[in-house]
Design a protein around this nucleic acid. Structure first.
Length: 424
RNA sequence: GGAGAGAUGGGUGAGUGGCUGAAACCAACGGUUUGCUAAACCGUCGUACGGGUCAUUCUGUACCGGGGGUUCGAAUCCCCCUCUCUCCGCCA
């Protein structure tokens, strides 16, 4: 969420910047500034009353000790009135504070200046495109047919055991998954990321910290008996490591990576987009997360984009990098680059990574700060994260693009991880 | 699942109604001393929100797991919740 003081001091700027996200913030901002002013006024009065109350209490204590009981009783007379007033003011304050907060969380993050104008995915800016679209042999088929042909992924079996969107990987399919996970984790470690193995279930506080709660609970699986949520991405548990933490400035940037299974309800998804591996309820992903100094967070973003670029290039997949336009960005992001690989049999680009700088938007909620080296005061840090990478669509593109009449070729870089160079 | 104990600042840990935003020690930071390191000594050493000078400062309030209550006054007493630990049971 946006910082309250920032909204109060820059209402016009907030409204203007959010126009790029096609979000009309004028009413909310106006309500926030009006309520905040009222809130401050109430606090001033309440604090004054509390100060007087504290003073009286102290006096009563002294008088009692001196045995001046009557004077003490006299001093008490005023407290009843003050007490009522304080109670009322505190209630008003809490109510308005809650109102301000619930308005505050409605405001999306401000897009960075270089975010392109636009509303739909068509308006995203292609900043890079690399790799040749493969020419597939005759009778080439999409990955779901390949999965069946070589018996490496069984979608029907997943339906039997759990339901749609929970595939069962078998044999070389399972081994290829495992190879990809290890490859991605090793690459991240070589780029300086600390490997983390996080919990797959999180509590409400964590869901709130990264912004899944309160509004996006419909996208998470909820274990109601224990009130825990299955993670939709490792971003949630990993970023929450730093919830309510003040880190040392010299320790920035903090770089973490984690593999996890990810669970998404994907309520409302349907049609050809969900065919095969294109959209699943459970999938594997290696995530990279950085906690950065505000002044250098965009350098860190570039570094993360370069890291992901290295991955898709080593996998020899044709890819493009998009800078998302204002209308296609997530609520929480200030700048996002999407990576898409070309899936040659489906003949379409598939999103395999999304790398974002959230600036202080997440950190505000998380209360994640660093201590400034000069002022020694806590300052809100910047958070960034990206997929590096999500497996299913990588798998889809690898299977489709590398199919030959004799089987599916494994990219060289994965052969040592797989222990085979061909699925046949 | 059953029984018991507990939750205090970065850590250990004192504190059972006012002089406690909180002892002491450790860690950290700054300094003195020193050829260097160490030791010793001195000092600093919470967060949030608000108000005034808006520059370094000054000041009010809140916070001792969370919420509520008693009281002029609560870390301290009462109630509820959450979590942690120990023992027993079960178990990868």
């Amino acid at each position: 969420m946006l910082n309250l003081k920032f909204i109060q001091e820059n209402p016009e700027l907030v409204i203007a910047k959010l126009k790029k996200k096609h979000f009309d913030a004028s009413l909310i901002v106006q309500q926030i500034t009006a309520l905040s002013a009222k809130k401050n006024e109430i606090q001033a009065t309440a604090d004054k009353n509390k100060a007087e109350m504290n003073k009286i209490s102290k006096e009563v204590g002294l008088l009692m000790r001196e045995g001046k009981k009557e004077e003490a009783e006299a001093a008490k007379i005023r407290t009843a009135e003050l007490k009522d007033s304080i109670k009322q003011l505190d209630e008003d304050f809490a109510r308005i504070d809650q109102e301000v907060f619930s308005l505050q969380v409605l405001l999306p993050n401000l897009p960075a200046d270089i975010v392109p104008e636009g509303r739909t995915p068509e308006d995203n800016l292609v900043v890079k495109r690399s790799g040749d679209i493969p020419v597939l042999p005759e009778n080439s088929v999409p990955h779901w047919d390949l999965a069946k042909k070589y018996d490496i992924i069984d979608f029907e079996l997943g339906v039997k055991i759990t339901g749609a969107g929970f595939p069962v990987y078998k044999g070389k399919g399972a081994r290829l998954q495992r190879a990809l996970i290890n490859f991605f984790l090793d690459e991240a470690r070589n780029s300086g990321y600390l490997e983390i193995q996080p919990p797959y279930m999180v509590n409400e506080d964590s869901g709130f910290g990264t912004g899944q709660l309160p509004d996006k609970e419909g996208q998470m699986y909820h274990a109601t008996a224990d009130n825990l949520y299955l993670i939709p991405t490792a971003e949630v548990p990993v970023t929450n490591i730093y919830r309510d933490v003040i880190v040392e400035s010299k320790d920035l940037p903090l770089k973490n990576t984690a593999y996890s299974a990810c669970f998404r309800r994907e309520a409302g998804s349907y049609g050809k987009d969900v065919r095969g591996l294109n959209r699943l309820h459970q999938f594997d992903k290696v995530e990279i997360v950085q906690i950065a100094h505000p002044e250098t967070s965009y350098d860190r973003l570039d570094e993360m984009v370069a890291h992901v670029t290295g991955l898709v290039e080593k996998l020899e997949l044709p890819y493009r990098i998009l800078r998302l336009c204002g209308g296609d960005m997530s609520f929480t992001s200030a700048l996002t680059y999407d990576f898409e690989v070309f899936s040659a049999a489906q003949e379409k680009w598939l999103e395999v990574s999304s790398v974002s700088n959230f600036e202080s938007f997440q950190a505000n909620r998380l209360k994640l700060r660093y201590r400034d080296e000069v002022t020694k005061k806590p300052v809100v840090a910047h958070t960034l994260n990206g997929s590096a990478l999500a497996l299913p669509r990588i798998m889809a593109a690898l299977l489709e693009n590398n199919q030959t009449p004799n089987g599916i070729c494994i990219p060289k870089v994965l052969v040592p991880y797989c222990g085979f160079d061909m699925i046949d």
